[in-house]
């Protein structure tokens, strides 16, 4: 290889490295679960990444939408099946079941008590902090349609979108989690 060829190659590699490093800044997650403990893990990771200066996108679908519901959500204006789903599903971080040791709703209260004693932030605080730090939360439009969830049933500071909105971020990230 001539010196010119080597230098050209170095330049080309530097440009590629720059591109790769620019994309390193992203973390994307799919939050599928509406379990308290799993949502907790998702938002701990999201907050950590935000603190490290990363861009974070969370695509929230199916049961995960329970995390984003306002506790005041009602079945008003929904059809019979949507009303039933609205009634049966928990609404908001304070009302979620745990994936293990739920004990008909006593489990989460127990964990909240134990976590509070150790001064661990609540799920509600983690959600609020992540929004404050600029997390991009995308609620899945299709899941919302299926379960009759309206935009106003969910908290402020989030977007509603489709799978392409998530994938657009995911293709530009080097970390992607399904929770």
């Amino acid at each position: 290889m001539t010196t010119d060829a080597v230098q050209e190659r170095i330049k080309e590699l530097e440009e590629r490295l720059e591109k790769v490093e620019a994309n390193r800044s992203n973390l994307t997650m799919v939050l599928f679960s509406g379990d308290f403990d799993k949502a907790f893990a998702a938002f701990i990771i999201a907050n950590g990444a935000l603190a490290m200066g990363k861009e974070v996108t969370i695509f929230v679908t199916f049961w995960g939408l329970d995390v984003l519901k306002k506790p005041t959500m009602t079945g008003a204006g929904k059809n019979f099946l949507e009303k039933m789903v609205t009634m049966m599903r928990p609404k908001g971080p304070a009302n979620l079941p745990t994936s293990k040791m739920n004990f008909a709703g006593i489990g989460p209260k127990l964990f909240n008590y134990m976590m509070g004693k150790k001064n661990i932030a609540s799920l509600q605080t983690l959600v609020d902090t992540s929004i404050e730090f600029g997390v991009k939360i995308v609620a899945c439009q299709m899941s919302m349609d299926v379960m009759g969830i309206k935009r106003e049933d969910l908290i402020d500071g989030i977007e509603v979108g489709g799978v392409a909105a998530y994938l657009g971020s995911s293709f530009n990230s080097n970390t992607s989690l399904f929770i």
Binding site: I44, G48, A51, M52, I120, T129
Partner: peptide, 11 residues
């Protein structure tokens, strides 16, 4: 507790 010390420092 984690992740709050890092969050507060980052802020």
């Amino acid at each position: 507790s984690c992740p709050m010390p890092i969050m507060k420092l980052a802020a």
